[in-house]
Design a protein around this nucleic acid. Structure first.
Length: 225
DNA sequence: GCGACAG
DNA sequence: ATCTTGTCGC
């Protein structure tokens, strides 16, 4: 390993090399233990500002009751570059994670896992750092394609990139755009989709990331005044 | 060279 | 991601 898993002072070019190196560490397998709690994480910021807000919400399964929340205001030190999202968001996420007392059995990230050009999206990166089962649940595609989905909730189709199934397009709500689920670390695609489905209520986004999104935006607004 | 491109 | 009001549909 040339780069430690938590190297943040890298140039975009080095970051790409680091991802190629780290991707072999990712383990795609069914979760080791049953998952009774799942957390969702999200970040938010103001345009033209490097101040970013991060939030994590831990929920119980199958009740989906909020057990604990944590949030933090920090500074972004890496630009947004498609394919290198984790280098921008993870430092802030980790600060927030430190404040969390209840460590969840699994984590859902707003972004990709294996559905990434180098098969190393933010869900893989954070999963490796925390050595925790993680799944990516993105609102749009980074790589891959899928056939048209049925309009009913629960409809799904494999997300394929260059002959490889990297995730699943999942319609979580009737006649509403699907979300894209992929495995991060220590989970396989089937369990990732199952976890996502178990976390869905009446909205497009599963509760973990939806609640984290609501909380982080609340923090950002309150911080403005 | 051209188009695509998580948040 | 963020900038933003009303409006169409279940």
């Amino acid at each position: 390993m040339k780069f430690p898993l938590t190297s943040w002072n890298l140039t975009p070019k080095e970051a790409v090399e680091a991802q190629k190196e780290w991707r072999s560490l990712v383990r795609i397998e069914p979760p080791t233990r049953e998952i009774h709690t799942i957390a969702g994480a999200d970040i938010s910021f103001n345009r033209f500002s490097d101040v970013i807000y991060s939030a994590i919400v831990v929920l119980s399964l199958p009740e989906l009751r909020i057990i604990e929340t944590a949030s933090v205001r920090s500074t972004a030190k890496f630009p947004y570059v498609p394919g290198l999202l984790s280098f921008r968001e993870t430092p802030s996420f980790l600060e927030c994670w430190e404040k969390l007392r209840t460590k969840p059995d699994a984590l859902m990230l707003d972004g990709q896992g294996l559905a990434h050009p180098r098969r190393f999206g933010i869900a893989c990166h954070i999963g490796l750092i925390l050595d925790l089962p993680t799944i990516g649940c993105a609102k749009s595609i980074l790589v891959g394609q899928h056939i048209t989905l049925g309009g009913e909730a629960g409809s799904q189709s494999p997300l394929v990139d260059k002959t490889e199934v990297v995730g699943v397009a999942l319609r979580t709500k009737k006649n509403v755009a699907p979300v894209y689920v992929s495995a991060g670390h220590r989970v396989d695609l089937n369990s990732a989709v199952d976890l996502a489905l178990r976390s869905v209520t009446r909205y497009r986004q599963p509760e973990p990331t939806r609640q984290a999104h609501l909380l982080v935006n609340q923090l950002r607004r309150d911080d403005k005044g």
